[in-house]
Design a binder for these strands. Structure first.
Length: 422
RNA sequence: GGAGAGGUGGCAGAGCCUGGCUGAAUGCGCCGCACUCGAAAUGCGGUAUGGUCAUUGACCAUCGGGGGUUCGAAUCCCUCCCUCUCCGCCA
């Protein structure tokens, strides 16, 4: 959430920022409401001060055994006046709040300007496209013939988009999760978290999924709980309404979770196999840092996600998202895209973002500066480290052999317990 | 599912019955000063957050959320939310 004072004092910059994200917001309306609201507050403030003084006076008179009927009658009227102004102010406040909470974060100045995906910038590429001197199979063919997963049967259970992993496929899934968690714990200094997968509405509000993107989330009507679309949601809210100590920052958390996404409105080729699913597994990294360090931390975060792909020996590239492709809450974001030989395209497996104080404000996550003991909002970041479905696609396709088997990358072998699948 | 207890500042914890210098005792923590070669201990002082207006500053709000009673609510009433304990059921 953007602060009202920022909107008020830097209207042009904010206006420009959100328009670069493709949002056309009429700020004059909001500013008008805000001005009315503050005017009203001043008025109420003065009346309340008056009432407080009078009440004190009445207390004194009564204590002295006097009679204060006159003052009481006079104040009764003031009370009514205050009440009516207050309800007016509350209405305005409500309007302002509902407007502000759907305004997206402003992109960082370093973010390339652009309107869509096509304007994203390739920052770097790692490794090389695997070469094959035979006709390769795609991940669905490989997985089906090796019985790693079974989409027909999973459709019977849950419908399309809910993968059912079987045998070595199930073990591979578990191996990837464990490998990634261990890697971040052993090499990057994260603390492991195993979060709840259902949360209250306040948790996705913090992160920015609510109220604007409620349609994208699974919701259990009866208990009013949301299924998490990412571990970011529960993990970011670990410190909701807290004041952290500066010396305890940065805090690094990594968590596995199942992720649930309705993916409303996405049909067609992209939904084939594991490319876009309603439930998937992901290891997420979440950081709570000081404002001064957040951009440094973002660069570091990207390298943490990259380390997974490098260790698995997968060809990938790092994309810097342009302003128009940034998500609602992000100020800056890098995507990691892994190469799929059969799809002959890049697949997004990670998204690493700096939210600055946008989420921290929504979730009231603060820290106390050790220099002056004042509180300020932390900066939050998160990145996938990484999501398994497309990782599996790249893995199966890149490491397939002419006889239809799949070589397991060395780092993964202890986890899978075999050198070859099939 | 049934019964009960409770939500107060960075933390712990009074106050609520009996409404009025209580924005909130006390302790811990933290900061400053003194003592000390230094530290510990001790002593003294300070230490919530947000907002409105303004030059220092003034004022206002906030004791889980909302509503009500009242001149005045942490304190009384209603309502919602949350947490904990016991019993039952259950992986």
């Amino acid at each position: 959430m953007l602060s009202l004072s920022r909107i008020r004092e830097n209207t042009d910059a904010v206006q420009k920022g959100v328009s670069l994200k493709g949002e056309d917001i009429d700020f004059s309306l909001l500013l008008n409401l805000d001005e009315q609201h503050r005017k009203l507050l001043t008025e109420i403030n003065d009346l309340r001060a008056k009432r407080n003084r009078a009440s004190e006076e009445i207390a004194n008179v009564k204590r002295a055994g006097g009679d204060a009927v006159e003052a009481i009658t006079a104040m009764r009227e003031v009370g009514e006046q205050i009440k009516s102004l207050e309800s007016e102010a509350d209405d305005l406040q409500e309007k302002i709040k509902s407007t502000v909470e759907v305004i997206p974060n402003v992109p960082h100045e370093s973010v390339p300007i652009g309107s869509s995906e096509k304007d994203n910038k390739v920052v770097r590429e790692w490794g090389e496209k695997p070469e094959f001197d035979y006709t390769i199979k795609d991940h669905i063919e490989i997985g089906t013939s090796l019985r790693l997963f079974d989409f027909e049967r999973s459709a019977k259970i849950s419908g399309t988009g809910f993968p059912l992993f079987t045998g070595q496929g199930a073990k591979l899934e578990r191996a990837l999760i464990n490998f990634m968690l261990d890697y971040h714990l052993d090499h990057h200094g994260y603390t492991e978290i195993f979060p709840p997968f259902l949360t209250r509405g306040s948790a996705p509000f913090t992160c920015g999924q609510l109220p604007k993107f409620a349609e994208d989330m699974y919701f259990t009507g009866k208990d009013e709980l949301y299924l998490i679309p990412t571990a970011e949601v529960p993990v970011t809210n670990i410190h909701k309404d807290e004041i952290l100590e500066e010396q305890d920052l940065p805090k690094y958390y990594t968590a596995y979770s199942a992720c649930f996404r309705r993916e409303a409105g996405s049909y067609g080729k992209e939904t084939r196999g594991l490319l876009r699913v309603h439930q998937f597994n992901k290891v997420e990294m979440v950081k709570f840092v000081t404002p001064e360090s957040s951009y440094e931390e973002l660069e570091l975060l990207v390298t943490h996600a990259e380390a997974i792909l490098q260790t698995l020996g997968l060809h990938y590239r790092v994309i810097e998202l342009c302003t128009g492709d940034l998500s609602f809450s992000a100020a800056k974001c890098y995507d990691l895209e892994v190469w799929s030989p059969a799809e002959n395209t890049w697949l997004e497996v990670s998204s690493c973002s700096n939210f600055e104080d946008f989420q921290a404000r929504r979730g009231n996550i603060r820290y106390r500066r050790s220099s002056n003991h004042k509180t300020d909002f932390v900066h939050t970041l998160n990145g996938s480290g990484v999501a398994t479905p497309r990782l599996t696609v790249a893995l199966l396709e890149s490491y397939q052999t002419p006889d239809g088997k799949v070589i397991v990358p060395k780092a993964l072998q202890p986890y899978v317990g075999t050198e070859v699948l099939g």
